[in-house]
Simulated assay, not measured.
Amino acid sequence: MNIDLDRWLDELAVRGGSDLHLAAGNPPVLRLHGRLERVGEGDAALSAEAIAAVIAGAVGDEALDRLRHTGELDAAFERQDGTRLRINAYRQQGDFAAAIRLLPDRFFALDELGLDVKLLKSICAMHSGLILVTGTTSSGKSTTIASLVNEINKTRPCHIHTIEDPIEYRHRSLQSFVTQREVGRDTASFAEALRRSMRQDPDVIVVGEMRDLETMTAALTLAETGHLTFATLHTSDAVQSVSRIISAYPAAHQAQVRVQLASTLQVVLSQKLVPWANGGGRSLAAEILVATPNVRAMIREEKTHQMRTAMQTGGEHGMQTLNQSLLALLQRRKIDRATALEYSEDKANLLEELDRHAGQSPKRKGTR
């Protein structure tokens, strides 16, 4: 069949989508504002050979050979118009499949991210500690970190060192000196690159993802030794993010890790991209945990279950729960009630809040 990758990617960009999915035996599919939709009407099911041709055309025959050998491939590539994309290719049921993500061509200003600007500016001014940005796939983690790094790059003379798989956002040195390493091309692994990074005189370290115990240990050590360290985790809320790191260690080491995490953690941003009621886009809903002295004590003393209460009452420090964030979007009429409940991690609490707000302040026609 005729493979028209450029047409599919053009449609993805024009319609404000994020991903193109290709799998043998299926027509191409776009992800548009969180929903999946087939491309056009006349695109037939793809063959495995056709998908292999797409992959080879995007990243070359050497990468295709690696995919054939390992069954997995992560890479970034660039179109002739300068648009950058990330491709994850894999085998499923013996045939090739791929997810191609359109990478934004610009950094977001801090006031465009949908997060507390005062808190974001305070993060960019920090000189040490661990900043965790967490969430599921396609929750905007890379965009948030890239935008924070870009702000540091514009405002501080320091060495920013990123370790990614693959490199998504390319940073050009501005006030800062920026170096970027790609796993598989520039270094063998996250853990190996992190071990070497202290000899490279960094001030700010970006770890693409804390995937294993070795990477977690290296990131905590960097944060502990006076480096501002950004990292991501695939967790759905802030409390779970803290618990995930601690539980990754053997029981005999968890007390030490609690002390280490309590002393290094600065902020946890746990994100979700929530579709608008009109279907025209998505807004960021975020749970924010700030490591106040009280929160640090909770981590040390195995009282992480109390951190949710700290977030509910910690607005003066920039903290909020996911439900509080969803309620704010609902009150601005960005999302509807059903969507808020769908994305909530504590639906019972959100229902109580919705009923309480409805009783206290009935909506007036024409208000936002």
Results as ranks from 00 to 15, higher is better:
residue 249 Y to Q: 05
residue 335 I to F: 11
residue 25 G to Q: 08
residue 6 D to F: 08
residue 70 T to V: 08
residue 32 L to H: 03
residue 315 G to D: 03
residue 309 T to W: 08
residue 81 D to W: 14
residue 265 L to Y: 12
residue 211 R to V: 05
residue 49 E to A: 14
residue 271 Q to N: 10
residue 312 Q to S: 08
residue 27 P to A: 11
residue 347 K to E: 06
residue 262 A to I: 04
residue 356 R to P: 01
residue 154 K to V: 00
residue 231 A to C: 14
residue 73 L to G: 07
residue 56 A to Q: 10
residue 10 D to T: 12
residue 353 E to R: 13
residue 364 R to S: 08
residue 171 H to K: 02
residue 3 I to S: 13
residue 331 Q to N: 08
residue 131 I to H: 04
residue 286 A to H: 09
residue 201 D to H: 13
residue 284 L to A: 07
residue 223 A to F: 15
residue 250 P to D: 12
residue 312 Q to N: 00
residue 302 E to S: 15
residue 104 P to L: 13
residue 66 R to P: 03
residue 180 Q to H: 05
residue 50 A to F: 03
residue 143 T to Q: 09
residue 181 R to S: 06
residue 232 T to N: 06
residue 312 Q to P: 03
residue 109 A to C: 01
residue 33 H to I: 01
residue 178 V to K: 02
residue 224 E to F: 14
residue 167 I to W: 09
residue 79 R to G: 06
residue 122 S to Q: 13
residue 274 V to L: 07
residue 217 T to H: 11
residue 5 L to Q: 10
residue 78 E to S: 10
residue 173 S to N: 00
residue 114 G to L: 13
residue 245 I to F: 02
residue 147 S to T: 09
residue 191 A to D: 04
residue 143 T to R: 05
residue 251 A to T: 12
residue 218 A to Y: 14
residue 287 E to Y: 06
residue 120 L to S: 05
residue 115 L to N: 11
residue 296 R to Y: 04
residue 119 L to P: 13
residue 26 N to G: 00
residue 304 T to K: 03
residue 88 N to H: 15
residue 24 A to W: 14
residue 39 V to P: 08
residue 137 T to A: 05
residue 26 N to R: 15
residue 21 H to A: 01
residue 194 L to Y: 09
residue 125 A to R: 15
residue 92 Q to D: 08
residue 183 V to Y: 05
residue 250 P to Q: 09
residue 115 L to Y: 15
residue 318 G to E: 07
residue 115 L to K: 12
residue 267 V to H: 05
residue 131 I to F: 09
residue 268 V to I: 15
residue 271 Q to E: 12
residue 244 R to A: 01
residue 56 A to C: 07
residue 73 L to V: 11
residue 197 S to V: 15
residue 67 L to Q: 09
residue 32 L to P: 01
residue 154 K to Y: 03
residue 13 A to V: 14
residue 186 D to I: 13
residue 159 H to N: 02
residue 312 Q to A: 08
residue 198 M to E: 02
residue 160 I to F: 05
residue 361 S to Q: 11
